[in-house]
Design a protein around this nucleic acid. Sequence first.
RNA 1: GGCGACGUGGCCGAGUGGUUAGGCAGGGGUCUGCAAAACCCCGUACACCGGUUCGAAUCCGGUCGUCGCCUCCA
Length: 480
Amino acid sequence: MPLTVFNRLTRQKEEFKPLTEGEVKMYVCGPTVYDHAHLGHAKTYVAFDVIVRYLRYTGYKVRYVQNITDVGHLLETDEDRVIRKAGQLGLEPMEVVETYARSFFQDMDALNVIRPDISPQASGHIPEQIEMTQGLIEKGYAYVTDVGDVYFDVTKWPEYGKLSGRSVEDAQSERQIVGSEKRNSADFALWRHAEPEHLMQWDSPWGRGFPGWHIECSAMSKKYLGETFDIHGGGLENQHPHNDCEIAQSEALHEKPFANYWLLTGSLTIDGEKMSKSLGNFVTIKEALEQYRPEALRYFLLSSHYRGPIDYSDEALKAASGGWDGLMVGVQRVRFAMKDAPEDAAGSDFLETVEKRKQAFLRYMNDDFNTPQAIAELQELTTDVNRFLDQGQVVGMDVLTAINDAYNELGGQILGVVPETITIRTDLETVDPLLMMLIDIRSQARKDKDYARADAIRDHLSKLGIVLEDGPEGTYYRAR
RNA sequence: GGCGACGUGGCCGAGUGGUUAGGCAGGGGUCUGCAAAACCCCGUACACCGGUUCGAAUCCGGUCGUCGCCUCCA
């Protein structure tokens, strides 16, 4: 059962075949670090996190590169976003970059997003960008203006716009003539000249200046992944012009394909409108994590397909939290049963069910990373597990281990929503033995019909976010 | 206007030419010291209008509507 992916470039599902057997080279457009990341970023990077996790799970050696943009990303006003922020805060531009890059990684860590193998910064790759720009000038695809700007001439590259489905004429007509220095309205900057007071500038063959926004991705993917690589990812809203420009630059210069598979994620909306910094309707990841568990947030993001849109609302997040809770009930019941299960194969009939669910899960993941269906399958497994344990029969270690392994692999390793050990509060991570002692005391109290004491213990723990559940196989705890 | 995506039950959200997605909320039941959880049962959806077909929510055409992009955006 081969892995198929929807390739935005060809607009169809294709069997995934990497350039080198067993290896995947992947690049995803990263954030511009001038503010805290919001849930839109979370959607994109959680989606690619699961894609990388799954590729690795199925045996691929993956090199995952995701850039940090820290220079050259301009506002409508031609101001550099990072420099403007530095002015507002009275900081060096690189202090702004450092602050928000750290914030970004903190948020990603909290969301259990595995870090990319390389997180290159644009400002650290100026020579590479200059070299590519120089090459494009020499090949006649780019030209230098009187003031020292360098533009890519889209009319020299007829395929410009092929990812988003535009023709060069479309791209021309949709743009107003802004700078008289450009030959065509759709031409885009590879290099911009800088005035003396501009805070981030470097020497170049065309004078002091800084790179255009698009060239960094072409230059850094080339450096770390090669002229042609397997997967290029990013948010759908950057398809045009950004991704179209990347393709034009790289393919014009190298005369070979840039990325073989384009995987783009749908936008996250809030109240039906796209969440974005420009609209001011964004919820930062930090704000969302004050209200919801990171696992629930991941569960929410993965409960819609990566290519589709998803609308953020309290109802949707509560539903996702409830769904995650239900999953964890199954997980925790199994783990508690494992604490004193006999070392035998009792109940091994159930192994067939586990295997069936696992295969179905993997089948869905192989179909363009269909996480909503995969999650549904995990829920079905949980219903099976609960029904199984409700029978109250003795279940041997072999079977419990198999169930636990399935949860860890599918829900943990691949989706990243099932933690290896539940975290109640950070300051309570190692209290399992203490909780077990309390559960024992309470169980004795219940046997003695001292229900006041039993309930007091349960109430106290409840206030700490720990829920005790009395089931046929004994009492277990879980986080609320 | 151009390019692209999409319209599914109370809500969220998959999928598919004929067979139960799943979650949340709601109703009924079983279990239980109480609670909670779990399990069982219940709603029978697919924007609208045509067409293709033995049969379409699923394919084709059209209409209406929503959303994204069009040098701010993951």
